[in-house]
Simulated scan of single mutants.
Amino acid sequence: MRNSFLFITSLLLILSLVACSNDEEESSDSNEEENERTLEHASGEVTIPENPDHILAPYLEDSLLALGEKPAAQWSIGEDVIDYLQPQLEDVPTIEWDLPLEETLNQDPDLIIFSSPSSIQNGSYEDYESIAPTYVYEDEVSMDWRKQLTQMGEILNKQDEAQDVLADFDDKVEETKATIDESIGDESVAFLWTMGEEFYIFESTRYGAEVLYNEVGLTQPEFVEELEQEEQWNPISMEKLGELDADHVFVIAEENEPGLEILDESSVWQSIPAVENDQVYTMNDPSHWTIDGVLAHEMTLDAVKDALAE
């Protein structure tokens, strides 16, 4: 009788432990499912893991870093990387811009993010999805840096952080506006990028110029306002540059860029108002001028504010 009692007691204890273990597993599975989020994106739906920490997001590193996340590997074309982000990314390995499948697999990511459907070059969406959950931005979201950052906050479950970053940026815009209003008022400003021997004018929808003209409120010279559609972001001739009526000009170029020497030796360039009045400012880090991103635009605002306040 005593042995039977012990057997029954032991059996009940074992069943109780099994039940508790099952409950804990179900609770753990339930919590994991609750923390995962299923998002719609350009290629359908994807379930994002909780707290991904090995992320590949080529050419979206600005938004990642703004939210306190480092990528597992950074965008590159050969040895070229996003220069202005290197203080934060100098210890991060590179991966080719088009995410070759073998390189991607070797990085062992737990989340892959593409900037657009067209950026998937080396395989199908399903190829990448078989490696890790893969999110693909809609073009219209990716191309708007504010929307891009907000969506990155959604992807990483950092919505509040994204809103805080944008609020801080808006504060910087107001500070920049106050400084520039005091230093140059409504004098006109133009932005000229030279690469090689070619020249490009930033119109009011181009990169940081959009923030500077439309948010900070810098005055556009008539030359910029009247650029024809076919002239926007196409190389502009030196003869045409002779019509640039800006009071201030920012020349954006790497040191020793051939275009700088061309400008120095051009009598046409020397005759425009900004040059005659010694109000030309050379910016030798083009990388944050020719990309959209909150960190890039912060650097551009600081560069313009410092130059015009001197």
Rank of each mutant, 00 (worst) to 15 (best):
V211P: 00
W193T: 15
Y125F: 12
P71M: 03
M143C: 08
N284P: 07
E225C: 05
Y84E: 10
E138P: 07
V136W: 00
T150M: 11
Y128G: 08
S267E: 15
V46R: 03
V141D: 15
E25C: 07
N256R: 10
E40D: 15
K172F: 04
M1H: 12
E161V: 10
E34S: 14
N22C: 15
D171W: 05
C20Q: 13
K240L: 07
S10P: 03
I201K: 05
V224L: 01
L156W: 01
V280N: 00
S142W: 03
Q148W: 01
L105H: 08
E26Y: 13
I77S: 10
F199V: 12
E225M: 13
L13D: 05
L65M: 03
S76G: 07
W269R: 06
E265W: 05
L60H: 04
V224N: 04
A167N: 08
L192W: 02
D144N: 13
W75P: 05
S271G: 10
V224G: 07
A209F: 06
M195T: 15
I120N: 01
Q229C: 02
L13P: 05
V165N: 02
R146F: 10
S267D: 15
D278A: 06
S116F: 01
V189W: 00
Q270M: 09
E197H: 11
Y125Q: 10
Y59I: 12
S266K: 04
A190G: 09
V18F: 11
E79V: 04
A309M: 08
L105Y: 10
K158D: 00
F191I: 12
P273I: 07
E126L: 10
E310P: 05
P52D: 09
K305N: 12
V136S: 06
I120C: 03
